[in-house]
């Protein structure tokens, strides 16, 4: 008996046969997988598992529960506040800059320099950034002195301190805003002129267009970028450490001190502290990835 094979069946059969023949293709990614396991996944799992183990290696929730003590909770709380504030302000400011560059009728040549500068500034984090802000907003910094001498405004008398919540937020914005600009400018570019025209010709005003069409379309991108900026700020160690030493107790600095000298008198509490960081940045990045794919589906 002979069986007729339709072209579709033949097409489906061919790749299956080929993959059966070159079934050793996975060997090609063994080096990468080994690297990822040894230097990315296993070290992280080590921490995660350690967070649920006691001194003797037995399973326990005690470490995680120990996080709920006032000094650690307050460190998380101030970390979250700084991350939310710098992400939120970064999103708003970055959105307006991106909108100005994309649809704000600025001269076209200005776009290139703005994007290049954003690339530089979003990577200019760490210790030097702290120095720059100390030199500018510190007690003897340029802006502090100018405001005092020219306008009679003493920002330190008004409660500002570069070594505090407000100072750290102000500093983080220097890399948060450019990151937002880099991500959201293409999204604003993706708003089709026809959407605006269709809305307007149907009777919508400009605010109505933004409220009902443009912002809902951009919403996944905005939410996702907010999450990304949150994670970005939450994991930042160097800037905060160089700026405040260990005077400001935020989670990354607490963890840094713990790794260096076991300040918590309990090595497994350090694991739990790190686990908390992974969970928070993991949730934030999860939101980013999910909303991002949704945004791409729409814009396509």
């Amino acid at each position: 008996m002979t069986t007729a094979i339709t072209p579709a069946e033949a097409g489906a059969a061919a790749p299956a046969r080929r993959s059966a023949r070159v079934s050793f293709a996975w060997l090609g990614i063994v080096p990468f997988m080994a690297f990822a396991l040894l230097f990315l996944i296993v070290p992280t799992l080590q921490i995660v598992i350690g967070a649920f183990r006691d001194q003797d290696g037995a399973f326990t929730f005690a470490n995680v529960l120990h996080l709920f003590q006032p000094s650690i909770l307050s460190a998380y709380w101030i970390s979250i506040r700084i991350s939310v504030a710098s992400a939120l302000l970064g999103c708003v400011a970055g959105f307006f800059i991106a909108a100005a560059v994309s649809i704000g009728n600025l001269p076209r040549w200005m776009r290139g320099p703005v994007m290049t500068f954003s690339g530089v500034a979003s990577n200019f984090a760490g210790v030097p950034l702290a120095f720059a802000f100390l030199a500018t907003f510190g007690r003897l910094g340029l802006v502090t002195v100018l405001l005092r001498d020219w306008f009679g405004v003493n920002i330190y008398a008004m409660g500002f301190n570069i070594l505090s919540f407000s100072g750290l937020t102000l500093t983080y914005l220097f890399f948060q805003i450019p990151l937002m600009v880099l991500i959201v400018t293409p999204a604003i570019d993706g708003l089709k002129r026809e959407w605006r025209e269709a809305a307007v010709i149907l009777g919508a005003s400009t605010p109505q267009y933004w409220r009902m069409v443009a912002l809902p379309i951009l919403w996944p991108t905005l939410l996702g970028t907010f999450a990304l900026l949150f994670a970005n700020a939450f994991g930042a160690v160097a800037t905060a450490f160089a700026l405040t030493g260990s005077s400001l107790s935020i989670v990354p600095i607490l963890l840094f001190a713990q790794i260096r000298g076991d300040v918590l008198q309990d090595p497994h509490l350090g694991y739990a502290l790190a686990l908390g960081m992974i969970v928070l940045t993991g949730i934030a990045n999860g939101i980013y990835i999910v909303t991002r794919s949704r945004a791409e589906r729409w814009i396509k």
Binding site: A231, I259, N285
Partner: peptide, 19 residues
Amino acid sequence: ITMLPLVIPAIVIVFGYIR
């Protein structure tokens, strides 16, 4: 996998190395 380093803070990764 290549995106993981954006999720896991560097300080956590290095903590794992040390252990």
